[in-house]
Computed example of a mutant assay.
Amino acid sequence: MGDILRQAAYQLESTSDSARADSEILLAHCLQKSRTYLYTWSEKEVDSTTEATFRWLLAERLRGVPIAHLTGQREFWTLTLKVTSDTLIPRPETELLVETALSLLPSPLAGGEAPRSSGWNGLGKGGNKCVSALDLGTGTGAIALSLAHERPDAQFTACDFSAAALAVATENAHSNAIHNVQFIHSNWFSALPPQRFDVIVSNPPYIETNDPHLTQGDVRFEPRSALTSGQDGLDDLHHIITTAPHWLVTGGWLLLEHGYNQGQVVTTLLHNAGFQQVCCLPDLGGNDRVSLGQWPSA
Rank of each mutant, 00 (worst) to 15 (best):
M1A: 10
D3H: 11
L12H: 01
E13P: 05
S18A: 14
S18E: 14
R20N: 03
A21M: 12
T36I: 14
L38F: 06
W41I: 02
E43H: 13
D47L: 01
S48Y: 00
T49C: 01
T50L: 03
E51S: 03
E51R: 14
A59R: 15
G72H: 02
Q73A: 11
R74Y: 00
E75I: 10
F76I: 09
L81V: 09
K82L: 06
V83P: 03
T87E: 00
I89Y: 00
E93R: 06
T94K: 03
L97K: 09
G112D: 07
G119V: 06
N121W: 00
N121R: 14
N128I: 15
K129M: 04
L136W: 10
T138H: 06
G139Y: 10
G141E: 09
A142W: 12
D153Y: 02
Q155K: 05
D160P: 07
F161G: 01
A169P: 10
E171N: 08
H174W: 07
H174T: 13
S175R: 14
I184V: 15
S186K: 07
F189E: 08
S190Y: 04
D198F: 04
V201M: 13
P212H: 08
P212V: 12
L214R: 08
L214E: 08
R220H: 07
S229E: 10
H238Q: 15
P245C: 09
W247I: 10
L248P: 14
H258G: 06
G263L: 07
V266R: 12
L270V: 13
F275Y: 15
R289Y: 04
V290G: 02
A298N: 14
